[in-house]
Design a protein around this nucleic acid. Structure first.
Lengths: 233, 233
DNA sequence: TGCATTATGTGATATTAGTCACAATAAAAC
DNA sequence: GTTTTATTGTGACTAATATCACATAATGCA
């Protein structure tokens, strides 16, 4: 159960938004994390971490939706993923360089736990099973990025947009009204194509009855068709 | 000291090509790995792992050069990195899906230790410090991929090629004659641009005295200039 | 509710990059 | 050393995508 306004969940033991990897921890270990975390409310549009800033925390999204993205030198944005509650942000800096590799912005009002890096590492050293679970998250994220690299590296616009639609419309997001929080430029930035091209292709797909446009919302009508576009690139 | 032909290093304790993270292990732990590894010689051109194949091993390059790459649906190749001796290949499948996320091919005759995944994971669970060291490798790799994603996502060809040249000519490769083992298409595939465009741009850079072409070898003459091209994209 | 601001959407044009065909050069095989 | 094969390199042409300018629609604020 999420906290009501200004009333935060007190301790990790009682948190009902626990990531499954926390299940491995014994209560004392959860208490240890509690003592080394800060729980903060971020409003929609606020950054919860900034690329290049010192990375002192791993962030755990207790409630809300967060978008992670890369900022490029020529002022472009590459959207990486939408993080939902019970998921982490900022692992890539846990044992790496001292700076965040990407930025994250809150798409809704969000409750985020900032977990101190040093304490978190101590826990990882103590609990091998827990650290292997965290590695699982690294591996999943790496898979995700490779998929994105393949898409952006060598697919034409339509294939990339198909990938983005399949991602944004996947069942994992069913409980959220994702499109309420992202605009056409956001969608474009998942695919590294321009906003205008994105809108043109969305219109084409709509005219071909492969998707349905309803204001900001997008519904896939012909999933095999979209999957085929994704494959063909 | 590397093994002579057909005479492999017997055990991990005596290996002189150890990665620094192995230093954390006590001799018994090194013996444990020895008992669960196979050391194999790969000839130039041979695959040491294949994208999509079952991932049973983490691979440790004791000696030689290995290229890792993504294979895309439309028969394109995205080169990820060149792995030199004392480095690992195949971590992204250690705790993830059961398949290798990318392929790797030996650029030289290479000695590779195949470390059984399950045994490796047991060791990670037992030695927290070791697992944090391995996480460091995950973090470094993730940084590398994000950098590549930014390059390919939004830089023009020249900026991407500059990134590739900076990567291939970095001091870490000084001891190797890298360009002896990779051709123009390989270089192109680091940047996701066509072989013809790559050759044209290399010729332009040569005419501008920013690089020197000497057969397959490329030498950067104007490093700040190339860095500037990389930044400007 | 009305106004100002932002987002969406469109069509024409410009820019960037890939492809094609093939000549020249280098490397490998005999 | 010669022949065959592979790679490099070139120029013309084609394809893919971005940009631009602006009209229309939606959202936010007072």
């Amino acid at each position: 159960m999420a906290a009501s306004d200004n009333l935060l969940v007190k301790g990790c033991r009682n948190c009902q938004q626990q990531s499954t990897c926390f299940n491995i921890l014994i209560p004392e270990e959860l208490d240890f994390i509690s003592q080394h975390k800060e729980q903060i409310i971020f409003q929609k549009g606020e950054n919860i971490c900034k690329q290049g800033a010192f990375a002192n925390y791993v962030m755990y999204v207790a409630e809300g939706l967060v978008k992670t993205y890369l900022e490029t030198a020529n002022e472009k944005t590459i959207n990486l993923r939408i993080v939902k509650d019970s998921e982490f942000v900022g692992f890539s800096s846990l044992c790496g360089t001292k700076n965040y590799n990407y930025s994250a912005v809150s798409l809704t009002r969000s409750i985020v736990c900032l977990l101190d890096n040093e304490s978190f590492k101590q826990l990882l050293m103590k609990n091998g099973q827990f650290s292997v679970e965290i590695m699982r998250l690294y591996c999943r994220n790496e898979e995700h990025i490779y998929k994105k690299l393949k898409s952006i590296g060598y697919k034409y616009m339509l294939g990339r947009l198909a990938d983005t639609l399949l991602y944004l419309c996947n069942p994992g997001f069913d409980a959220y009204d994702i499109f309420k929080y992202i605009n056409r430029k956001d969608i474009a930035d998942f695919s590294c194509i321009s906003k205008e091209s994105t809108i043109k292709l969305l219109t084409d797909l709509s005219l071909n009855n492969m998707i349905k446009l309803n204001g900001p919302r997008i519904e896939i009508l012909d999933k095999p068709g979209i999957q085929n576009l994704s494959i063909k690139g």
